[in-house]
Amino acid sequence: MTATDLVRVERLSADYRDGAGWRPVLRDVSLTIRAGEVLGLAGESGSGKSTLAALLLGETMPERRIRAGHVRFGGIDLFAAPRDTVQALRGRRIGFVPQNGGASLTPTMRIGGLLRSLLRHHRPELSSRDVGVRAERVLAEVGIPDPPAALRRFPHQFSGGQQQRIALALALACEPDLLVLDEPTTGQDAVIRQAMLALLRAIRRERHLSILFVTHDLATLAQLCDRAAVMYQGEIVETGPAPDVIERPSHTYTRKLMAALPRMDDAALADRVAAQ
């Protein structure tokens, strides 16, 4: 580990309440994300990858408990630090995009209300004029057409793909150091998925932030990530440079995940989207 590690997950074990008892969901997980690095986290549903993503934001809930280990963000232990300290990191230094971006947008609030209240809370030094300018700029950055009009609209007035982009804009608005993406392309068709990946590559180029990209789809890892980690039944079974993990998988589970990949068409699509 080096001084440039932004996130350090140290021997983390967590349980999930399952009916009567506790079921382990993470077993002795260690992981680092360096400043400016894009780490892909792959695994099938139930492997614990979404839990790990949520714990990077220090999220606590009654049906989950930390049994052992630490999550450190910029040196701060998220499960030992005061609640206010953690809450100040969320949204400000750590942006989170959930799988269903549309459902993450409060239906009774306009896009402008969502973005502006977030900016005003985390960046109180900004004038209301600057808040408006930033809100428009971040919507333009994620490819929402006509940002001034979009700010006046409600979430349901956008398509699913656009809602996902707005969720991304909310995660990016306060210029975080880390972006946690929990399956942001799952459940979308191939064209929208490729457009989202192209957008994420562009954001990465412009912003120099760190990204944790959670997916069950190894093919998308290859298009975006520097390093990849593979999870299986709550454990990290393989980590390494993304091309190595994908082309020369050492763990039998990774080989099985790779073998399940059908997607020649995705690579072709990626080229088409890139050409546009």
């Binding site: 989170f96 959930p98 993450s104 409060t106 609030m109 209240s117 977030l118």
Partner: peptide, 20 residues
């Protein structure tokens, strides 16, 4: 999801309850 995300975006509890 939207209340969970409002919390995970670092918004204060009062704001989450009253606005979201």
């Amino acid at each position: 999801d939207y209340v969970r995300l409002a919390v995970l975006r670092g918004l204060p509890p009062r704001h989450v309850l009253l606005r979201h």
